[in-house]
Amino acid sequence: MNVAWTYDDEKVCVEAFFKFIDFDKTLKMVRKEIIEYIKLNVKNYEIRTHTSWVLKIDNIHYLFRVWCGLPKAGLKGKTSKQVEIMNIFFENSKFKNSTDKFSKEWFISKKSEFYKLKKYDPESDKKETIIVKLIRNKKIVTDYLNQVNFCENCLKENTFISLSSGKMYFEVHHFIPYNEEVQKNYEINLDNYYNLVSLCPECHRAIHLSEQRNTIIKNLFDKKIRIKEFKGFYGENGIEKIISDYKKTNMTKDHEVNFADFDDDLYDFVI
C-alpha cells in the first residue's frame, strides 16, 4: 500500500542517515544500522515495506551528494519535506562542518584520478553535437560596434585590442534574446540594429549568468525604451516581459555556457 510520508517519518530517516554516514564506508555498509535506527524511532515501521524505507534512504543519499558537490548517486527523490528537513541539518554547524569535511576528503581521495595524465583518444575524447542557431546578420554587428565602441552597461571604454579588428574589443548582445523560443512571440525579426547593445566581456557574461542579471536588464531597458524604433516593435510592454524572455534562454546559473565554444567568431560574438 502506498502510504504518504509524514514529516516525522522523513525526519527520522534524515537523522538516521546523518547519524551513520561515514566517509570510510559505503552507504550499503551502514544501511543496516540506518534501518535499525529507523525501526526504533518511527511510530510504525510496518506501515511501509522494507523496500520503501531503503528507497527513502537512497533519496537522502542523492540529496546529500548534491549538497556536498559530489558526483550524483542514489535515487532522486521528489518530496519537499525531505529537502526542508535536510536544510535544517545542513544549517546546523555540526553537520555543515562534517559535510564540508566529507566533500573535501572525497575529492582528496579522488585527486589522483582527477589529475592523472592520460593519452588522448580521438574516439572517446570528443563528441558530436548538432547546434541549430538562428541566422545572424554580421553586417549590423560590425556597424553597431563602429558606432558604439564602449560598454553600454558599465560605460567601460577600454578592454583590450582585438586581434581581428585592431580596435578595442566589445561584444554585441541582442537585448531581447534572439532565441527561437522568444522570437516566435515577436512579429519583427529580433536580429535588428535597434535590438543590439554593446557590452564588455564581463557585462556580457553577467547579463546571461549572474545574479545581477535583472539589474543590468533594467539599466539597459531604461536606455532602449527611449529609442523610437525599439519601442515600435517592443510596444508598451514593461520590463517584466524582457525578464521573462531571458528565462526562456538556456544561459542560466543552472546551465552556464562555456563562451569559449564560440571562439570561431568572437569578433562578431552575438547572442
Results as ranks from 00 to 15, higher is better:
Ile47Gly: 05
Ile243Lys: 11
Asn189Arg: 00
Asn219Val: 08
Gly235Pro: 01
Ile243Pro: 01
Asn87Leu: 07
Glu46Phe: 01
Asp22Ile: 12
Lys19Tyr: 04
Lys228Trp: 00
Leu55Cys: 06
Asn44Leu: 06
Pro177His: 06
Asn146Val: 06
Asp58Arg: 14
Ile130Asp: 11
Lys32Gln: 12
Glu229Asn: 10
Ala4Tyr: 08
Ile239Lys: 01
Ile225Tyr: 02
Lys11Arg: 14
Asp254Trp: 14
Asn179Lys: 06
Ala16Val: 14
Ser165Gly: 08
Glu152Gln: 15
Lys39Ala: 07
Tyr267Phe: 13
Phe102Ala: 04
Lys248Cys: 06
Glu123Lys: 14
Asn41Gly: 09
Ile140Arg: 07
Val172Arg: 03
Phe64Asp: 05
Arg65Asn: 12
Lys116Gln: 07
Ser98Cys: 06
Val12Pro: 10
His255Glu: 11
Lys76Glu: 12
Phe269Gly: 12
Lys139Trp: 02
Cys203Ile: 08
Val172Met: 06
Cys154Arg: 13
Ala16Tyr: 05
Thr49Arg: 10
His255Met: 10
Glu236Gln: 05
Leu117Lys: 02
Ile21Gly: 03
Thr252Lys: 09
Leu40Lys: 15
Tyr120Ser: 01
Asn258Gln: 07
Arg136Cys: 03
Pro71Phe: 12
Pro201Gly: 09
Leu70Val: 05
Val172Asp: 03
Phe107Leu: 05
Phe221Thr: 00
Leu220Tyr: 07
Ile271Glu: 13
His50Ala: 02
Leu163Glu: 14
Ser98Val: 13
Glu123Asn: 04
Ala73His: 10
Lys104Ile: 01
Lys247Ser: 09
Thr79Glu: 07
Asn2Ile: 13
Val132Cys: 08
Arg136Asp: 07
Ala73Trp: 08
Thr249Phe: 07
Val197Cys: 05
Phe107Met: 04
Leu70Cys: 03
Ser93Phe: 03
Gly74Met: 11
Tyr7Ser: 09
Phe64His: 13
Thr159Asn: 15
Ile88Thr: 11
Trp53Ile: 02
Glu181Lys: 13
Pro71Cys: 10
Ala4Glu: 15
Ala16Cys: 08
Val3Phe: 12
Ile130Ser: 08
Leu27Arg: 15
Asn195Arg: 00
Val182Ala: 10
Glu84His: 11
Asn195Val: 06
His61Gln: 13
Ala73Glu: 12
Lys11Phe: 15
Asp121His: 05
Ile176Gln: 05
Lys184Pro: 00
Met29Ile: 02
Ser162Ala: 12
Lys116Thr: 02
Leu209Phe: 10
Lys253His: 07
Leu55Glu: 13
Lys81Ser: 11
His208Gln: 05
Phe90Tyr: 11
Leu63Pro: 02
Ile131Gln: 15
Ser124Asp: 00
Leu266Pro: 00
Phe90Thr: 11
Asp8Phe: 15
Ser112His: 14
Val42Gln: 07
Val132His: 12
Ile47Arg: 15
Gly235Leu: 02
Met251Asp: 00
Glu256Asn: 06
Leu40Arg: 15
Phe107Ile: 13
Lys19Val: 06
